[in-house]
């Protein structure tokens, strides 16, 4: 079942990020298998409302993943 804002509101902040990460990771892994852990870590720094939106919208997720990859590669260079 889809993750909702009310489900998140029922658990502590740290657990909210855990729930979001568990949902986002497999989607990101499909796009970037080798960087999925790092990308998920970066995206979890965003607001939960944005993360929920990314779970609902592949387009939105893909765009943020692309941004994260660019930042990650620049950082690693």
């Amino acid at each position: 079942q889809p993750l909702t804002a009310s489900m998140l509101a029922a658990v502590p902040p740290q657990e909210q990020k855990q729930m979001l990460g568990e949902r986002l990771f497999p989607l990101i892994q499909d796009m970037h298998p080798s960087l999925a852990g790092k990308i998920t870590g970066m995206l979890l720094e965003m607001d939960n409302s944005e993360l929920l939106h990314m779970l609902e919208s592949t387009e939105s997720l893909r765009s943020k993943v692309d941004e994260a990859v660019a930042v990650l590669k620049a950082h690693q260079a």
């Binding site: 902040p13 740290q14 990020k17 855990q18 990460g21 568990e22 990771f25 497999p26 852990g37 790092k38 998920t40 870590g41 970066m42 979890l44 720094e45 990650l72 950082h75």
Partner: peptide, 22 residues
């Protein structure tokens, strides 16, 4: 920050430790 350990890595099934100050 821009240190070597950034960004914190998420691993499924492992408790997330990336954001300690939320």
């Amino acid at each position: 920050g821009t240190n070597a350990s950034w960004p914190p890595e998420f691993c499924p099934g492992v408790p997330w430790k990336g954001l300690q100050n939320i």
